[in-house]
Amino acid sequence: MVDGVIITVIKSLVLASVLMGFFAYMTWVERKLIGRFQARYGPNRVGPYGLMQPIADLGKMLQKENMIPEMAHRKLYIAAPFIAMTCAIGAFGLLPFGNVATIPGTDWTIHLYIADTSVSLLVVAAIGSLGFYGLMIGGWASSSKYALLGGMRAIAQLVSYEVAFTLAVIGVIIQASSLSFVTIANAQEHLWYIIPQFLGFLVFFVAAVAESNRPPFDLTEADGEVVAGYHTEYGGMRYAMFAAAEFINAITLSALGAVLFLGGPSGPFLPGPIWMMLKIGAFLFVLIWIRATLPRVRFDQLMKIGWKVLLPVATLNLLLTAVAVVYL
C-alpha cells in the first residue's frame, strides 16, 4: 500500500491525461458513429479512417486567435473555460476503476481510485454542479445576448434536473446504505442495481443526459435558437476546453451510472478497469445513439419532462425503495 501524496498526484495526472485522451478520441468516435448512424462516413480524410482527426483538430484549435469580445468581463471570460474543465475532471477523481491492483512486476498494490470518502457521491454531485458555473460565467462574461441566454438556460436546466437526478440516486443510496462509491460498487456483486432500481435508473439516465447537456437536451447550445449558447463568443482552445468539459461531464456521468447501477468495475474474466471502460463505453454509445435519433426538445418541454415526469417518477421510486427496504 503506497498511497501517499506522490502516488495520488501521479494517479491524478494519469487520470487527467487518460481523460483528455479519452475525450479526444471520443470526439472521433462520436463523429464517426453519428456519421454511420446517418449513413455517412464521418471523418475519414486525416489519417486512416480519419484517426488523426482529433490531433488535427487540436492543432487547428491551438493555432486559432484567442479573441476576447470588447465588452466582455475579461478575467471571468478567461476563467470560465478553466472552471468548467477543472470541475469536469475533478469529479472523476472519486470514481473507482476497481479495488486494488498490483503493479506488474512489483508487489506494490494501489487502489484503483484516487480517493474514497464517506460522502463521495455528494462530492461528485457537488463538483458536478459547480461545473455549471463555468457555463454561466462564460455566458455572462461574454457580454453577448446569445451567450447569456445559453448560460441561463444551462442554469435553469441544471437546477431542474438536479432534483430528479439526486432523488433517483437516493434510491441507490438507500439500498446500499452508503454514499461511498466503493461500498456501492461492492454492494452490487450479486445483483446490479439496474434491476431493483429500474425506475431510478431510467430517471437517472434521462437526468444525466440533461445534466451533461447532450442532445436531445442541448438547449444551452441550441444552434437554431441561441447560435451556440454559452460558448458563442469563444473560439480556439477556450472553446475546446468547453467542449472537453462537456464531454468529460458525459463520461463522468456515464461512469457514475456504471458505478451506481451496473456494478462498477466488477465483472467476470476481465480486470476491473476494463469492465469499467466497457460499461462507460456502453453508456456513451447509448448517448450518441440518442443524439443520432431524437430531435431537440423545446425549452418548455424540457421543463415539463423535468418537473412533471422525472420528479414524480423519482419520488415514486424513492417511496417504493424506502418501503421495500423497510419491510422486505
Binding site: 456519421g35 454511420r36 448512424f37 449513413a39 455517412r40 462516413y41 445513439w289 440518442i290 435519433t293 431524437l294
Partner: peptide
C-alpha cells in the same frame, strides 16, 4: 422504431 432505424443505419453502406 426511431432508435431501431438509426441503429440499422449503422450497418448500412454509407451513401455519401
Amino acid at each position: 422504431k426511431g432508435f431501431s432505424t438509426t441503429f440499422r443505419h449503422l450497418f448500412q453502406k454509407p451513401i455519401t
